[in-house]
């Protein structure tokens, strides 16, 4: 990797890692994941399943929060505080700048998720659950989802304010969770144009539901390896497409 891209990635990671908000969210993520034990006491049924279900949901929620907050701020702050003047006047392209930013965010998310995952694994083991390979797979899929979210927030932060970026990213995230319904919904539409439109949205907008294998992991049902492989390819393609769009917008951006 070129030292310039690595430099920007490391600096991006450093910025997140030296932000108190980052630690606060990681802390709450761990706290809520561990409090799943409490929920399991209060619920009827298999306590381990409840523990995994609520714990993984808490980690998911806080990781998504970290991805959105760090993603929407990083490029915008560079522009707002004019630190970008200093970077883009150096012999590196705007494409390399975006690539470095994304890699730094990916590293940030890996650290946040890694910290929560290690503690959750230990917690499950101590609670008598042993090592569950399914949970590891769940975290891997969650990481893919986080990469897509980070790429979405990076795209918006390259041309709009953090508030609008937040609204757009959260909207896409929520739509992405129910995207699968679009595919089924289209069959009920009578007008062909609407069907084409709905089908178009289905392929265009992120289908984040693909990455959610929590139910399978908690219930212990089999996970289709082809479905996992498809999700990996889907995440890669989607992230690359979003980064390409971000680069196209950022190349044309003027810094007054």
């Amino acid at each position: 990797m070129k030292p310039a891209i690595r430099g920007i990635a490391v600096n991006t990671f450093r910025e997140s890692a030296r932000n108190k908000m980052f630690y606060l969210l990681v802390f709450f993520g761990i706290l809520f994941a561990l409090s799943s034990k409490l929920v399991s006491f209060l619920t009827l049924g298999d306590a381990m399943k409840v523990l995994k279900d609520t714990g993984l949901a808490a980690i998911n929620f806080f990781c998504v929060l970290i991805a959105i907050f760090t993603g929407i701020n990083l490029v915008y702050k560079e522009i707002e505080k004019k630190t970008v003047f200093n970077i883009l006047s150096k012999p590196l392209s705007r494409d390399e700048f975006i690539a470095g930013k994304f890699l730094g965010l990916a590293l940030t998310m890996l650290t946040a998720l890694g910290a929560m995952a290690v503690i959750f694994f230990a917690f499950v083991a101590v609670s008598g659950g042993g090592f569950d390979l399914g949970i590891l797979l769940y975290f891997f899929m969650l990481y893919l989802e986080l990469l897509v979210i980070v790429a979405i927030s990076l795209l918006f932060s390259s041309f709009t304010t953090p508030i609008l970026s937040f609204i757009f990213t959260v909207s896409l995230y929520l739509i992405g969770q129910v995207m699968w319904t679009f595919n089924e919904f289209k069959d009920y539409l009578a007008i062909p144009l609407w069907r084409v439109f709905t089908q178009g949205l289905y392929y265009l907008l992120p289908n984040l539901h693909k990455f959610n294998i929590k139910n399978e992991v908690v219930m212990g049902t089999a996970i289709d390896p082809w479905s996992v492989l498809f999700s990996v390819l889907y995440a890669l393609a989607y992230v690359l497409a979003l980064l390409a769009l971000t680069v196209l917008i950022f190349r044309r951006r003027e810094f007054q």
Partner: peptide, 11 residues
Amino acid sequence: LFSASLFNIPE
């Protein structure tokens, strides 16, 4: 050091 890295100068 960060600025130097942007010129692809090894750390």
